[in-house]
Amino acid sequence: MSSYRHPGIVFTDRYFTVPLDHGDPGGEQIEIFGREAVASGGTGEELPWLVYLEGGPGFGARRFIGAEAWLGRAVREFRVLLLDQRGTGLSTPANRQTLPLRGGPREQADYLAHFRSDAIVRDCELIRPQLTGGEPWTVLGQSFGGF
């Protein structure tokens, strides 16, 4: 984990390992990237978590440069996790460079079947206990992230 400060906010980069196929938890693993944001001046450890899911599909979470837009308001009440959903941003990529490594069109389609919204929800449920100790968190989704 690496942390850095911007005006009004401290960001910490986090990586989480999850199964590519949640039906085969011992199989191939991928990484999910999340950027934690808390108000500067405190660690925010006493605050509840809010996970933000970006729209798209196919876009990583926004990269804020400080207390911009809604994030500045949210960090007053929450520790915020800006999650790059599987295949996007700094998470294990699924793109035109990586898909041909999977084989032909059929193999690529089979691989991409693991990047649906139900897999993203299961990723979140594997990540949540690592951050909250099993406590609930608040979810904020924009567009596709709202599904």
Rank of each mutant, 00 (worst) to 15 (best):
Gly42Phe: 04
Gly44Tyr: 01
Ala67Phe: 00
Ala37Lys: 07
Gln97Tyr: 14
Leu20Ala: 04
Leu81Arg: 00
Tyr111Lys: 02
His22Arg: 00
Gly27His: 05
Val75Leu: 01
Ala69Pro: 00
Phe64Pro: 08
Phe33Lys: 05
Phe64Val: 10
Val38Ser: 07
Tyr15Phe: 14
Cys124Met: 15
Ser117Gly: 13
Phe59Asn: 10
Val10Pro: 02
Gly44Trp: 00
Asp110Asn: 01
Ser3Thr: 14
Arg63Gly: 11
Glu77Asn: 09
Ser3Ile: 08
Pro48Met: 12
Ile9Glu: 03
Phe64Asp: 10
Thr92Ile: 05
Gly56Tyr: 10
Leu71Phe: 10
Phe64Lys: 05
Arg62Ile: 11
Ser2Gln: 15
Pro93Phe: 01
Gly27Cys: 07
Glu36Ala: 02
Gly72Ser: 04
Phe78Gln: 04
Tyr4Ala: 10
Leu99Ser: 00
Ala119Gly: 03
Gly42Val: 06
Ile65Gly: 02
Leu101Cys: 10
Pro100Asp: 05
Ala94Asp: 01
Pro48His: 14
Gly42Tyr: 06
Gly26Trp: 02
Arg63Tyr: 10
Gly41Arg: 08
Pro105Asp: 11
Cys124Ile: 15
Leu99Phe: 00
Cys124Tyr: 15
Trp70His: 13
Gly72Phe: 03
Asp118His: 15
Pro57Trp: 06
Pro7Thr: 13
Glu45Val: 14
Arg35Cys: 02
Leu47Gln: 12
Gln85Tyr: 02
Gly55Lys: 07
Pro25Gln: 12
Pro93Leu: 02
Pro48Glu: 14
Glu107Asn: 04
Ala39Pro: 04
Pro19Phe: 03
Asp24Thr: 06
Ala74Pro: 07
Thr12Glu: 13
Arg5Met: 13
Arg79Val: 12
Leu99Pro: 00
Ile120Trp: 09
Gly41Ser: 13
Gly42Pro: 04
Arg106Met: 08
Tyr52Phe: 15
Arg35Ser: 01
Ala113Val: 01
Ile9Ser: 02
Val18Leu: 08
Tyr111Arg: 06
Gly60Phe: 12
Tyr4Pro: 05
Gly56Cys: 10
Leu83Tyr: 06
Trp70Cys: 06
Ser40Met: 06
Phe16Thr: 09
Glu28Asp: 03
Arg73Gly: 14
Gly41Asn: 12
Ala94Asn: 00
Arg14Val: 14
Val121His: 11
Pro19Met: 04
Asp13Phe: 07
Cys124His: 12
Asn95Cys: 11
Gly42Met: 04
Arg62Asn: 10
Tyr52Ser: 07
Ile65Phe: 06
Ser3Met: 08
Ala39Tyr: 00
Thr17Glu: 12
Ser3Asp: 09
Gly26Leu: 10
Ala74Asp: 05
Pro57Ser: 08
Trp70Gln: 11
His114Leu: 05
Thr98Trp: 07
Asp24Val: 03
Gly60Asp: 11
Thr43Leu: 10
Arg86Ser: 01
Ile30Phe: 00
Arg79Phe: 08
Ala69Ser: 14
Arg35Gly: 03
Tyr4Glu: 12
Thr12Phe: 09
Leu71Ile: 14
Thr17Val: 13
Ser2Tyr: 11
Gly42Glu: 13
Glu68Thr: 07
Gln85Met: 09
Tyr4Phe: 15
Leu20Val: 08
Gln29Gly: 00
Gln97Arg: 15
Asn95Gln: 05
Phe78Met: 03
